[in-house]
């Protein structure tokens, strides 16, 4: 009898050990993939290289804040700003996520001023829309320019970047109304940002689904019979960067994974077509084995960051 109890206990211990081991293995793989994803951005970010000033504010709302990564060299006449917008599905995320930190340290080490910016994201209660986020980011860019001047970093040009929802917002910042930015924008580079919110590209098959999708993103109150109306289309176009491309659009570097289950893989095509039609300088890097995190193609990761360096060198003067 005692032997049976001991064996049962041992079996339970083995089962628990197995479950814990699977979780440990899963965490190890996530750690490995993240390190591999950002290894090209690794720098030893000491005070000789640069500094970070955290939690500066640009407005009164709780998420109107940003982190500044500043190069140690303060002697130059002008600096270029890299304006980073975090992802999080328009409903979450933070300026301190690992991608922000890695990009910030790397780009500050290259002599750029890097700002990682928070914005008020949408919750079920606050009714915040993509346009509201865009407006906050425009305010942020203008406040950051003034703050940098105070700190002795005179900005004379900028680039916008981000991933996922941040990629979408970075493109809007760079393309929608560049005259509202404090300094000329010269470049956008982004990963997996939704470029079109045309509901059919997102799997909406009925008019009810289409208006529900558009209403969530725009805060409008369309009903099914509005589908196809001028106002309805205008609301979609207002947040779809693909419809804003013209011959004056700045160069754009883009990266997408065809296995993306979060952002519609179809939504990039209107943007790619518009860039081609308007002869806008751009480069699209496809990560063939990746989804939304672009984690499955280390060779493409290398290509993306090399191209980012080339674009920064080519289009920014500082």
């Amino acid at each position: 009898m005692k032997k049976v109890i001991v064996n049962i206990l041992f079996a339970v211990i083995c089962l628990i050990a197995f479950v814990v081991s699977v979780i440990v293995g899963y965490i190890m793989s996530a750690q490995y993939l993240t390190n591999r994803r950002y290894k090209y951005l690794n720098v030893n970010f000491t005070q000789d290289v640069g500094t970070v000033i955290k939690d500066l504010t640009y407005g009164e709302k709780p998420l109107n804040n940003y982190d500044l990564y500043l190069p140690a060299d303060k002697d130059r006449e002008n600096y270029s700003l890299i304006f980073f917008v975090h992802g999080g599905g328009f409903t979450g995320g933070d300026k301190s996520l690992i991608e922000a930190k890695k990009h910030g340290e790397y780009l500050a080490s290259k002599g750029y001023v890097f700002a990682s910016v928070n914005y008020t994201y949408a919750t079920t209660e606050n009714g915040v829309t993509i346009n509201d986020m865009y407006e906050e980011l425009i305010t942020a860019a203008n406040v950051i320019e003034k703050k940098c001047a105070e700190l002795g970093y005179n900005l004379n040009e900028m680039a916008a970047t981000g991933g996922s929802a941040g990629g979408c917002l970075a493109m809007l910042v760079g393309v929608k109304a560049p005259e509202r930015l404090p300094v000329p924008i010269k470049l956008v580079f982004e990963e997996t940002g939704p470029a079109s919110f045309e509901p059919d590209l997102w799997g909406c098959e009925t008019d009810e689904a289409r208006v529900a999708f558009v209403n969530v993103l725009t805060g409008k109150k369309f009903i099914a019979s509005d589908v196809g109306s001028e106002d309805y289309q205008e609301a979609i176009d207002e947040i779809s960067v693909a419809t804003m491309i013209n011959e004056n659009t700045v160069p754009i570097l883009l990266a997408y994974g065809p296995n993306d289950k979060i952002v519609s893989a179809e939504a990039k095509y209107p943007l790619l077509n518009a860039l081609k039609e308007n002869n806008v300088e751009h480069k699209y890097i496809e990560f063939p084995n990746s989804g939304h995190g672009l984690l499955g193609d280390p060779d493409k990761t290398k290509e993306y960051y090399r191209t980012m360096d080339e674009y920064l060198e080519k289009y920014l003067s500082n």
Binding site: F10, A17, S21, G25, N259
Partner: peptide, 30 residues
Amino acid sequence: MKKKLIILITVIVIGIATGLVFGLNSIGGL
């Protein structure tokens, strides 16, 4: 006792390997 220890270690190794493979496939393809 020694036999049980070997079984437990084997279970842990298989568990970690399973987690790694599952993670690399699922997260890697995300």
